[in-house]
Amino acid sequence: MALYYVAHRLFAAHDRALGAYIAHHLARRFGPDAVFLPFCDTDEENLDHPCKGRRLFELDSERLARIDAMVAILHGPSLDDGVCMEIGYAAGRGVPILSVTTDFQVYGPTADTALRLPFPDPLLQHVVDRVISVPQLGPPGGEGDRFERFLAQNLHAITRVATEVADALTDWPTPGPAMPPPSVNDQPLAYLEPSLYGGASWTAQVSDALRAHGFATHHAERFTNAAADPTLTASEDWTALAHASLAVVDIRGPETPPGAALVWA
């Protein structure tokens, strides 16, 4: 039996409810034992353990090590770093990743660019195998006051997303190759992921220190090279990460950026 992991933001009731709705829809199609839903299946609300965070990490990692596909729920410009780490873990193993969003926002390197991406970090676009996006509300009409009708329009979009996810998993592609082990070269490669909140001096200092110890370095360029297509530089960053024997990630800032969380995994 295949096992599907539903990765979602955990910290608010509406995020957990959306994850539970999609997991419930998948369980009706594939069976309850085919779906793993964090927080719910680890009983996080009631888990009593002297090192609860570590125990939850172990429980989630145990499932991540044997899943056949991941459904990752991603919304908004500030993506959940925990979900992005789960995506990075799955991508490194070659596990197919299906992303789900009802976000009507799109992103690009500049305001006037013709390039429109579903996520603020193009590295996510590169590692995710398929994006299911339903940004529109459902059809107007129905009964009740205007708020009830508006709620029905939003629930219609969520139902459509869940149905499309189940349909996609029914005919899911075979897993891709796992990230290869680091290349064995005379000069090892170090991958550097700078912080989006600044840190040019950090990059220079870390690069100098690594080169002094015999490393070649690759600096993530999908945000720093404004003249390049970010989808191409994201691919180059991921390829460099696959061949690196060391990754150094700057996680400074009010939150861990999504690409940094993905690389960190």
Rank of each mutant, 00 (worst) to 15 (best):
residue 3 L to H: 11
residue 3 L to G: 05
residue 4 Y to H: 09
residue 4 Y to S: 02
residue 4 Y to F: 15
residue 14 H to I: 09
residue 16 R to E: 05
residue 21 Y to P: 07
residue 24 H to W: 12
residue 25 H to Y: 05
residue 26 L to A: 12
residue 35 V to K: 13
residue 35 V to N: 08
residue 37 L to M: 05
residue 38 P to F: 07
residue 39 F to L: 07
residue 40 C to G: 03
residue 41 D to V: 13
residue 42 T to W: 05
residue 45 E to A: 15
residue 48 D to Q: 04
residue 55 R to W: 08
residue 59 L to T: 07
residue 64 L to H: 01
residue 74 L to S: 02
residue 80 D to I: 01
residue 81 D to R: 08
residue 82 G to C: 01
residue 83 V to Y: 13
residue 85 M to I: 02
residue 85 M to F: 04
residue 86 E to D: 10
residue 89 Y to T: 07
residue 89 Y to K: 13
residue 92 G to T: 06
residue 96 P to I: 01
residue 99 S to E: 02
residue 100 V to W: 08
residue 100 V to D: 13
residue 103 D to L: 06
residue 107 Y to N: 02
residue 108 G to E: 06
residue 111 A to M: 07
residue 112 D to I: 15
residue 115 L to I: 11
residue 117 L to N: 09
residue 118 P to H: 14
residue 120 P to E: 00
residue 121 D to V: 06
residue 123 L to R: 15
residue 124 L to A: 00
residue 127 V to Y: 05
residue 127 V to M: 12
residue 130 R to I: 04
residue 133 S to P: 07
residue 137 L to A: 02
residue 139 P to A: 15
residue 141 G to Y: 06
residue 143 E to L: 14
residue 146 R to H: 06
residue 148 E to R: 10
residue 148 E to I: 12
residue 148 E to N: 05
residue 154 N to V: 01
residue 161 V to H: 11
residue 161 V to T: 04
residue 163 T to M: 12
residue 165 V to F: 02
residue 168 A to D: 06
residue 172 W to M: 08
residue 177 P to L: 08
residue 177 P to C: 03
residue 180 P to N: 03
residue 187 Q to I: 15
residue 190 A to Y: 05
residue 200 A to M: 09
residue 201 S to T: 15
residue 201 S to D: 07
residue 208 D to F: 01
residue 212 A to V: 10
residue 213 H to Y: 10
residue 214 G to R: 09
residue 218 H to W: 15
residue 226 A to T: 15
residue 228 A to G: 05
residue 228 A to F: 01
residue 229 D to K: 04
residue 232 L to A: 09
residue 234 A to S: 13
residue 236 E to I: 15
residue 246 L to R: 12
residue 246 L to M: 04
residue 251 I to Y: 04
residue 253 G to L: 08
residue 254 P to Y: 00
residue 255 E to M: 12
residue 257 P to Y: 00
residue 259 G to I: 02
residue 260 A to K: 04
residue 261 A to Y: 10
residue 264 W to K: 11
residue 265 A to G: 00
